[in-house]
Simulated scan of single mutants.
Amino acid sequence: MFTKSLIIFVGIGIFSGLAIGIYLIDVKNTSQLVFVEGPSISIVTEKFDFKKGEEIKIRIVNSGTVPIIFSDTSYGLRITGLSGILMYSPGSQPVVSQLEPGNEIEFLWDQTKDHGDFSLEGLYKISSKGEDPDGNKVEKSTTITIWK
């Protein structure tokens, strides 16, 4: 009796571990840059996991077929904690910026917060928000992890 239940529990554990592993591989390897018909933006980073203090290159790409209009020179870029608390937004001026289809803008983040402190380890959400020529909101975000 003991050996049958042991085999069943070990089998369930192996199957569960395999299923969770496949799910996590699919989540981590999602493509950041997908071109579509209509309005779309993509946020692209070199990788998803960064060491603490490592410079992070963030590209905002117009991955659609219409221009995207932003209300400032930061192209709507915001970096927040998962709780939604703003950690960093590049200095911007209230000047209308436009990103043509296929074009991109690049920002570098040195992991410092707006008030000068360094970011802690954890998960961060990078997002950008703009509008298409018809006034419809276009948003995109991605999540990165900062490790020790």
Rank of each mutant, 00 (worst) to 15 (best):
I58G: 02
F107R: 03
F107M: 06
K28Y: 15
V34W: 08
T80Y: 03
I20Q: 09
V10T: 13
D117Q: 12
I7R: 14
S83I: 08
I8C: 11
K113E: 09
L77K: 00
F70I: 01
F48P: 03
F50L: 02
P39W: 01
T80K: 06
V96P: 00
D49M: 13
I14G: 06
P67E: 00
E139D: 13
S42P: 03
S5R: 14
R59M: 10
L24M: 15
I22N: 10
G13M: 13
E46W: 09
V138K: 00
S42I: 02
G102A: 07
F118D: 08
L6Q: 12
P67N: 05
F118G: 07
S5G: 11
G53P: 04
I68M: 04
V138S: 00
S42C: 06
E104W: 07
G84C: 09
F107K: 04
W109P: 00
K125E: 07
I79C: 02
K129R: 15
F9N: 14
Y23V: 10
S63G: 08
M87H: 06
I41K: 01
V44W: 01
F107Y: 07
G116P: 05
T65F: 08
I7W: 10
I8Q: 12
R59D: 09
V61T: 03
S128H: 04
G76A: 06
I12N: 08
T3M: 14
K4E: 12
I146Q: 01
I146H: 04
W147H: 14
T45P: 00
P67C: 02
E46F: 10
T3K: 15
T112A: 09
V66C: 07
V10K: 09
S63L: 05
G84E: 08
E104C: 07
F70M: 03
I43P: 02
I7Y: 11
P94M: 09
V34C: 09
